[in-house]
Design a protein around this nucleic acid. Structure first.
Length: 279
DNA sequence: ATACTCCCCTGAGAGC
DNA sequence: TGCTCTCAGGGGAGTA
């Protein structure tokens, strides 16, 4: 669920509680959350590290520490909580960072899909996932020429390509639908068939949708999972994802599956491209 | 290199 | 009521 705007919101909400704090100890209750290095090394290397800065790259949270970089991907339902040291732990709290203010910074993840990676600072850019992430929504290099070239060799639906983090980083299922709706492009259209003009629309609408969503603190869809400090308002602005009627033409919104992802579109505003037929 | 399939997880919701 | 089944969904791994 968290896409770029939600990840930014989480990063901002954590700053006040974490910047300048020292991690004294780490406990891991579900080991698969730690993707790299091995759990023991992860715990050992984090001890005595101070949190200096919090950023995002794609959908990753990037914690700059004294001598390491901690990456966290929330995937579907990851979230953070703060609890006094020793507070009862719920069954979905899988990692706990003991801070130097008698608080535990805890990672909660119902589906256990989230992942954490710890790297030495200098290795960050050479390794997965950073060495294979595409441009951010606000990167000046994100141009219609770049997309047109990248799309040429992708003979799969544009919806799927927008979710490919190696081309544009940070777009997830919800915003992909919104971007294609605003661009008036059918989500099944093969990426390789898109004109430069349509690539330009995708560039503009990617920037537009993400910027507006970031201003509103992202999208909160699952009411049951409202997380501490994160209350997005962009769900009120969604035009097509999860909607019933097209806000422009009142046509019934259709839901289909593309690449296994639920996909919403307006069959009138987002027509299937047809090859021009000679008269 | 690109495309496709399977898998990881759990809770919610449907069906009986 | 309560059990069983299906499904969503980001991304990594394995395979063609």
């Amino acid at each position: 669920m968290p896409e770029k705007p939600e990840v930014i919101t989480v990063a901002k909400s954590l700053e006040r509680s974490l910047i300048g704090r020292k991690i004294q100890k780490v406990e891991v209750y579900y080991e698969n959350i730690i993707a790299y290095p091995k759990v023991e090394a992860f715990q050992k290397e984090l001890a005595e590290e101070t949190i200096e800065q919090i950023d995002t790259r794609g959908k990753w949270l990037v914690f700059t520490l004294s001598s390491k970089i901690l990456l966290v991907h929330l995937r579907m339902e990851g979230k953070f909580l703060f609890r006094p040291i020793g507070s009862p732990r719920s069954k979905h709290e899988h990692v706990s960072f003991f801070l130097n203010n008698d608080m535990e910074w805890r990672y909660h993840d119902t589906r256990k899909f989230g992942r954490m990676i710890l790297y030495p600072k200098e290795e960050l850019l050479d390794k997965k996932p950073f060495n294979e992430l595409g441009y951010e929504y606000n990167d000046p290099n994100l141009t219609k020429e770049y997309l047109f070239t990248a799309f040429q060799k992708r003979h799969i639906p544009i919806k799927t390509v927008l979710l490919d983090q190696s081309i544009i980083a940070g777009i997830g299922n919800i915003y992909a639908d919104e971007i294609l709706f605003l661009s008036r492009i059918h989500p099944s259209t093969l990426a390789s068939s898109l004109s430069k003009q349509k690539c330009q629309r995708i560039v503009e609408n990617t920037k537009d949708v993400l910027m507006r969503a970031i201003q509103l603190g992202g999208t909160t869809i699952h009411s049951f999972s409202s997380q501490e400090g994160v209350h997005g308002k962009f769900q009120n602005e969604l035009l097509v994802h999860g909607q019933k009627k097209c806000p422009y033409c009142q046509t019934d919104i259709k839901k289909i599956y593309i690449g296994g992802r639920g996909t919403y579109y307006c069959p009138r505003c987002q027509r299937v491209q047809r090859k021009k037929v000679k008269a």
